[in-house]
């Protein structure tokens, strides 16, 4: 009982520290989603489909295929959910990378770790905070998108599918979670904000290129290596764009497993690590 109270205390303090970032970023990205929806709220998709079909096949493939742009959900995905790593991923990495190293650099960690809390307890608190933070930002964002969808004529005409929105929310949480847990992992390796940020951003871009471009650059090899990227499992084009939920459970499980493995690796590493002066 005491352990959970201590965890809650750690999460609460981090949440209080980051409340303005959370609200600010959640509202900003939410408004951006709302704006994207308002842009496409009056589009004529029949005309747009005809135009896309007139484009050369190679160009269509590069744009993400007809599938991605044929309905308001696909278009919202192409403009919003496909770029969530850019809108929020970098911000999440920035927040996570400094979470533990900053306490080391500011020498505040000594005092915290001298209190009755294990290192595992401390790091678990940080990890849980990161997930709570991501979930809260995406929840705010999702509310704005839901509002946009429920007021946009194109969505109303096409049909309101909140299940797709919920699935996209879940996938985005886990997708951003993998970036955050990568950051937590590197922060336990380096205990240094700069090194952690650089390593996390590099890994993020590598994942992005493998996931989005490997199959375009080399169709045979790319088909195989794209599964090494977390981007492959963040398939909102299928889930949100077309309402195809077939691979959703599998993708959720894989992303969840990556999050858990990285978190456990961080805990194991941090448990043995010397805290530098």
């Amino acid at each position: 009982m005491w352990k959970s109270q201590k965890l809650l205390e750690l999460i609460k303090q981090d949440m209080l520290d980051k409340k303005w970032s959370l609200l600010g970023m959640g509202i900003l990205i939410g408004l951006m989603g709302f704006y994207v929806i308002s842009l496409i709220s009056s589009l004529d998709f029949t005309q747009m489909q005809a135009y896309i079909e007139s484009l050369p096949e190679a160009l269509r493939a590069m744009l993400g295929g007809e599938l991605d742009l044929a309905n308001p959900y696909s278009l919202t995905n192409a403009y919003f959910y496909s770029f969530i790593w850019l809108y929020l991923g970098i911000f999440i990495i920035y927040i996570t990378s400094s979470l533990i190293p900053q306490e080391v650099e500011n020498h505040t960690i000594d005092l915290t770790l001298s209190k009755p809390i294990t290192r595992i307890g401390y790091l678990t608190g940080k990890i849980l905070f990161v997930y709570a933070f991501i979930t809260a930002i995406l929840a705010i964002t999702t509310i704005f998108i839901a509002l946009g969808m429920s007021t946009a004529p194109t969505f109303l005409e096409y049909g309101l599918h909140l299940d797709r929105l919920l699935a996209a929310f879940l996938l985005a949480t886990l997708h951003l979670g993998t970036m955050a847990s990568t950051s937590v992992f590197f922060s336990t390796v380096f205990l240094d904000t700069k090194k952690t940020t650089i390593a996390s951003v590099v890994v993020m871009f590598i994942m992005f290129f493998i996931g989005d471009f490997s199959s375009l650059m080399n169709p045979i090899l790319g088909e195989t290596i794209q599964y090494a990227s977390t981007w492959t499992y963040y398939n909102t084009a299928q889930v949100f764009g077309t309402g195809n939920f077939n691979s959703l459970p599998q993708n959720i499980l894989i992303l969840l497993a990556i999050n858990i493995i990285l978190s456990i690796a961080s805990l194991v590493l941090f448990r043995r690590k010397d805290i530098p002066v």
Binding site: Q5, E9, D17, N106, H107, L111, S114, K115, P116
Partner: peptide, 30 residues
């Protein structure tokens, strides 16, 4: 640690916290 209190040599706290919040937070971990 449940039975220890410690003052580190290089004593630093979160700069944006008040003294009261710092003390409360640390003591809440007991």
């Amino acid at each position: 640690h449940e039975k220890i209190a410690y003052i580190p040599g290089e004593l630093e706290f979160n700069k944006n916290w008040t003294g009261r919040r710092t003390i409360k937070h640390m003591l809440n971990l007991y």
